[in-house]
Design a binder for these strands. Sequence first.
DNA 1: GTAGCTCGGCTTTTT
DNA 2: GCCGAGCTAC
Length: 724
Amino acid sequence: MTAASELLRGLTPPQQAAAAHRDGPLLVLAGPGSGKTTVVTRRIALLLEQGVPPWSVLALTFTNKAAGEMRDRVQALIGPTGARGLTISTFHAFAARQLRAMGDRLGAPDDFTIFDAADQKAAAKQAVIDAGMEVSNWPPASVLASIGRAKQALQSPREIEAAAGDFYSRSMARIYTAYQRILERSHAVDFDDLLRLLAVALRDDQGLRSHLGGRYRYLMVDEYQDTNHAQFIIATTIAQAHGNIFVVGDPDQSIYAWRGADISNILDFESQYAGAVSVSLGRNFRSTSHIVEASAGLIACNESHRARDLHTELEGGDQPVLLTALDEHDEAREIVDRFRHLHDEQGVPWNEMAVLYRLNALSRVAEEVFRNAGIPHVVARGTAFYQRKEIKDALAYLRVIRNESDDISLRRIVNVPARGIGGTSMERLERFAARQDVTLIEAMRRCNEIDGLAARSTKAIGRFTALIDGWKSILTGSLIEVGLADLVARVLDESGLEAMLRARSGEEDADRLANLQELVSAAADRDGMVDDGEGGSVAVRLAEWLESISLVADADTIDPEQGAVTLMTLHAAKGLEYDAVAIIGCEQGILPHARASDDMAQLEEERRLCYVGMTRARRHLFLCRALSRTQRGIQERQAESRFFGEIPVESVRRVEPDDPWGAPPPVITVHPGQPVRHPRFGLGRVLRLGRRPQGATITVDFVEFGPRTLPAAHAALEPTDGGT
DNA sequence: GTAGCTCGGCTTTTT
DNA sequence: GCCGAGCTAC
């Protein structure tokens, strides 16, 4: 047996075919639990063993956790030295690295900052104002959604402007232009820019294409069904020269269409690449047959689902339970009881259990009940720590020190703690900055040129800029080796942030102080990491640390060592697996979500989301719903998720209390030609009634939105007489 | 200029 | 039910 075949040992024939693939395009359609990570990591190991240099292998993922796991598993196969030089990274981190390395050529600002969601929101608001429009008419969320769509389609403000016809799109083009101007002036890029700038450069620059294509001779893309257009262009252009593109995915697990993911990237792979090899991994090594059958029955209700052989050899086990509880507290208690039973009676460890939900808002009650029950648990919210007010403030200081052009961060800290630079002074500074087309810090430096600023204000501004300059000199000039932790501690102290919290002595303020200390520890950890490696100046460390903070995902923080039940969203759960899984809130309006249940395509994504959740479970699965639930302070009766009715009854067991609420709400009937009103799409006329595997449908021709096919049972259509 | 309060809107999911 | 914006009282 050669060394190569050793790496193929224990794989099924289709897994072997994929792992042993050497050159040319390959598509792996990998069902849940079919060992796709095994295939990818074995293939990387095989390539290296065959003499492919590690630095010519590039594997792209969506989360840091997925990248880390892939790296660990490759190292386990071939040892850490053999893996040195491999690039296994998220799309965003990879793009950021390329932009840092060759920013000028790629059109990225020098030494850019990455704007997170909150920064983007602030910038969007400012952009609306700069464009001379009202924030109340242009809510930041929808502005950002439009800008995001444009960026994912690789359209610049100018291209959007050229294509703009109606008032709305002309206004959007102006806001987009203003938004980009803010980013440029701030030396900042947002998440979509990271991908867009790299994709556009690769598309237009033959030299760059051959440079990256020459360097990365073997490209692998994980979760290919979730790539958006920009990511598709990045992958396609890098692979253009050699055609060695190996993609892994599952159309049934596509859950990011709302973020621009384009499922046709994976569906069209074979027609895009002539001679592409396709391998289907259908054997599920994860879940018992009951779970495989229940989930397969559900996903088969999607019209877009292509029938595939999905099977398991893990027979027996418990049937999944469809559980009805009285309210959300009762629901969580039921799960606590069942999890405790699994733990105490069957020895299932806590960290092998997870509670999944469609909405973050559902985590609160579950968390409370788990806490009261004394069951160890963690909520997977990687970003939560960095979104706390005091942490955001501290980070804003650090970001300004690194890049003083970052107006958004500067505005945040300029008067926190209060130092006499209030609204009036800021207004004057902003106006000066706008007129002179300079950054805020520049305006502050030149504040004696500004008429009408009180002497007291000028002094306060001078003290502030001196503070910033003092910290900046630590980055540039210091001969003594300063650690990140020292820098952070000094900033917390000299800014007065710490003193401000210490002066107030509420319970919450003590928490905040502790959080700031935790930030110092995080910086110290970072110092430790770097000390083991190549070192680097404190300026570089700061830049890299801030970047890694911007690019964390919720799922990244899941640490199985913690010995706790994990609570997280269904989205965050993709790619993970647990012995026992409970999905809570399986109710109409939650799963499927209210904003997705009136359109077939969106409803199918909700169904895939439920499918992803179910297929996380190895042996025990609970789908739970409550008869009533309090949301946003209002208690309401909840209808069972339509997905309950779509799961084959013979593969599950139902558990229900006596329904104290009586009969379900009535169903509305309509006929073709009838005028109707829809809460979201407005007025329309029924075109036809249809029938699909998942139930009856109604196609309505809406005045504003055109024809749409809606699920009949939940279409929320209201018959009208046509006159109103 | 600042601190503390009330009112209103709102949330899907995330790199 | 929570957070942020805007208002009022110092």
